[in-house]
């Protein structure tokens, strides 16, 4: 089966006063229908830009995007209009992602109205069904967003994204602004929807524990590049890249005496403007050597487990190489 989404060497550079900002630099991956790809990284790693570039909310600088077998790198107006039915986005901040001047029903029915092919009655029925799907009671029909809490607001955002029946949704930190008890409600809702509608997600987050819960495959990004990519359970079982290890070790675990060694990381994120050719993590990496300053490749160290680190095998004491695949 062909993958639903294929991204090849995607690049997005922004022009700034100090030079080119490499927000997304040479990212490639494939994603099968009904699966979830988790994209993890700290602020400024380009994960949000990646999601928006795939949706053509931002134009890419270079690279190819294939959706459902079609090349959508440079869509025409009409193609783009079609694509917007199939691809949607859910935002992080349920406070700024809803127009404060539009009621719940107006927000959810807007995409249907814009399509101009439904009668008013049909629109109203579909809106009701959508509200029901995401668990919003009908009494909120004429309510405005500022009267609702974060969880309900996020449900409105989800209903709006579902309105046109998309196949693929980019979820940009959809739960990081919510309290834990509400966060769990929304995560469960998203999983239910995925099962019912065979949705494909790209789940962007900085929270590794959330991503583990929801993703089939995880991609760790650092300063615009993919440093590690592996199936979810595999990544947590054997984390190979020094950055992923540090990231994992930094998560506070809600358990007493959960003694874990904090992997030291020097300094803070360096600038993504005009980066040097070598490994971008080298400035903070505890294992840095001279060869790290040469360009790195994303290599399949174990089956389906890709790492971009020239010292990966040494550090993790892996001797065998992947055979039978190319």
């Amino acid at each position: 089966m062909a993958p639903l989404l294929e991204v090849q060497n995607l690049k997005k550079y922004f022009k700034t006063n100090r030079g080119m900002l490499h927000a997304v630099d040479d990212v490639s991956f494939t994603l099968d229908a009904g699966k979830t790809l988790g994209v993890v990284g700290e602020s400024g790693c380009g994960k949000s830009t990646l999601g928006r570039t795939i949706l053509h909310l931002i134009d890419s600088t270079d690279g190819k995007i294939l959706f459902d077998g079609r090349d959508i790198s440079n869509p025409t107006r009409r193609e783009l209009s079609r694509l917007r039915q199939d691809m949607q986005i859910i935002f992080q901040d349920p406070y700024s992602s809803l127009n404060p001047r539009m009621s719940v029903s107006e927000t959810i029915m807007e995409p249907l109205k814009l399509r101009k092919k439904f009668s008013n009655q049909e629109i109203a029925e579909r809106t009701k069904a959508l509200m029901d799907t995401v668990g919003l009671a009908e009494r909120f029909w004429n309510t405005y967003p500022h009267e609702l809490d974060g969880g309900r607001r996020q449900r409105i955002g989800i209903a709006r994204a579902l309105a046109l029946g998309p196949k693929f949704i980019v979820c940009d930190e959809p739960v990081s602004a919510l309290d834990v008890s509400i966060q769990a409600q929304i995560l469960n809702l998203m999983l239910d929807l995925q099962e019912q509608r065979n949705l494909t997600y790209i789940f962007i987050t900085h929270d590794l524990s959330v991503v583990k819960y929801i993703s089939d495959e995880i991609m760790v990004m650092y300063l615009g590049q993919v440093v590690e990519k592996a199936p979810s359970h595999e990544l947590f079982r054997s984390t190979l890249h020094p950055y992923s290890k540090a990231l994992l070790s930094a998560i506070p675990i809600p358990k007493v005496d959960a003694q874990r060694e904090l992997i030291p990381m020097k300094g803070e994120v360096t600038s993504p403007i005009n980066p040097k050719p070598g490994c971008r993590f080298s400035a903070r990496c505890p294992y840095v050597q001279d060869k790290c300053h040469e360009p790195q490749v994303l290599e399949e160290i174990m089956p389906n487990h890709f790492v971009s680190c020239c010292r990966c095998r040494e550090i993790n004491e892996i001797t065998e190489s992947v055979k039978g695949r190319n």
């Binding site: 986005i89 901040d93 814009l114 994204a161």
Partner: peptide
């Protein structure tokens, strides 16, 4: 630059609609 404007773009709203409605 608010996200709801981006959301409107994502549901294929045209510029005049975005300006007037959002």
């Amino acid at each position: 630059d608010k996200e709801f404007v981006e959301a409107a773009k994502a549901i294929d709203a045209k510029s005049p609609h975005i300006i007037i409605r959002h």
